[in-house]
Amino acid sequence: MSGFRKSIVAMLAPSLGLIAIFVLVPIALTIWLAFTKWSSQTPFSTATFIGFDNFREIFGTSSVGRDFKGAMVNTALYSLLSIALLLPLSVLFGMLIHQAELRGANILRTILFATYMVPMIAVALVFSKLYSPTEGPFNQILSWVGIGPQPWLSSPDTALVSVVLLNVWQQVGYFTILIIAGLTQIPHSIYEAARMDGARGPSLFGFITLPLLKRTLLFSAVIALINAVQVFEPVALITQGGPVGSTNVMTYHIRRVGIERAQGGLGSAMSVTLLLALVVTVTAVFALARREDRR
């Protein structure tokens, strides 16, 4: 090995070594544990190999399987709803703020981003009170326009959507900043040329802004998906996965199974499945985007 190569290895070794220890080794351990029966309260040496039993159980018809599949569906719904609300809203706010002539754009930008900086514990506590069915401000505001009280977090039909709204409120500022960054990359000359050709408002947005924002939107969608799949705090702090498991999302369910019930093997199998699902989804999104690019 040449001296140059040796120096590259020497310089990369500390960071790669840390990544290997703190990322790759735990992932490998989790994959191995997914094929074992293991109480997470005991040393790894107590784990016994059981093949695919954990995976059979989480996809089976027992309560373990039902709860796991329910958590998968809840997580998918949460992610889809979050992305479906976050992206259009962030584009809307981004367009508004990006207009140079808009007075107070900087203040609006600061306010929007501020929500992202508020710790989730505070957001969760405040929203749990805002959503209160009897004394909550949301229901009071609705009553002013003649809408009856909504159960928000207290009904299995509305609890997940309520948590999504909380998430959207907190993250929309962050995604707005990403969209603004994307908008600044679109040259003004393209808009000017389009205007000379007679294009106006909606046409400019549909034929220039959106297509040229595609990469930013794709990146935002992937980040929003990863954030949504990892949702944990609002569920742990407010709903505890209820009512009737309607907000029981994957990360909360994995904690419940792998740590509270000490079923480390099952919890690891769920973690591995979630990881695979996320990898497959993100890969599919990028593959679709590449195919669109080729067209």
């Binding site: 703190f22 735990p26 989730m120 990892q230 990360t251 994995i254």
Partner: peptide
């Protein structure tokens, strides 16, 4: 955001080893 349970499980495994 704070450490998620998924990552917690991974890190927990590593910490246990030490």
């Amino acid at each position: 955001m704070t450490i998620r349970p998924l990552m917690g499980l991974f890190l927990g495994s590593a910490l246990a080893a030490f």
